[in-house]
Design a protein around this nucleic acid. Sequence first.
DNA 1: ACAATGCATCAAGATTCATTGATCATTCAA
DNA 2: TTGAATGATCAATGAATCTTGATGCATTGT
Lengths: 106, 106
Amino acid sequence: MPTLSGKNRAKTAELFHALADETRLDILDQLKEGERCVCELTDALQTGQSRLSFHLKVLKDAGLIHDRPEGRWIYYAINSDVVEELEDLVASLKTVKKTVRPSPRC
Amino acid sequence: MPTLSGKNRAKTAELFHALADETRLDILDQLKEGERCVCELTDALQTGQSRLSFHLKVLKDAGLIHDRPEGRWIYYAINSDVVEELEDLVASLKTVKKTVRPSPRC
DNA sequence: ACAATGCATCAAGATTCATTGATCATTCAA
DNA sequence: TTGAATGATCAATGAATCTTGATGCATTGT
């Protein structure tokens, strides 16, 4: 089971940070239905190209999406394996069984 | 199935934002094992009280934790139901079946 | 009643993040 | 080869976030 703290706390925080923005949630919502090129996204989300490019980079750096250049276009798609990592991370938040513990000494 | 976009995009982004910080991940890691008062957390995480209080507020505002004042102490604990919401949200990121779609018209 | 403890909150400063417009590189079509 | 289209990147500005130290407020023990 993954733990939130530990060696890759930073990577975990980066993952969640990538999800912590409404524009990026919109992007992912689009990509859920399959890969899309940037022009389709600017079209669907009604936003500036440079803005979109910025957010795509954040998502890509976090590992949530990947790109596939094809000719003049670049298609973006969700990285399913990273989504599964995310599921594990969130699942690891579930409270473990409560054990008896010493009273606070502070 | 929840959708990332839509009515509560903002709330979703707030949830993920609360998770997008290493200190807050550390806090949650502690709370996984049961409720803790602030003094225990400052102790365990070796950090300033005011800093911790700030992050606890972020987590609480997002709904991830709740507090229970008892005498001189305030105990914090994870909100399991919100963790389950989170699981659903992450699960909703999974790519749906790819359908044939028109070529990009841009 | 007084002092001490646990914790929230505020103000100030530093840092990070997001937005916008401009520019550049690459690809394709005429 | 010239020009248009796709998309990345950079610089500048503004906004949000985090940190730290100070202050204030309950609650408890003496």
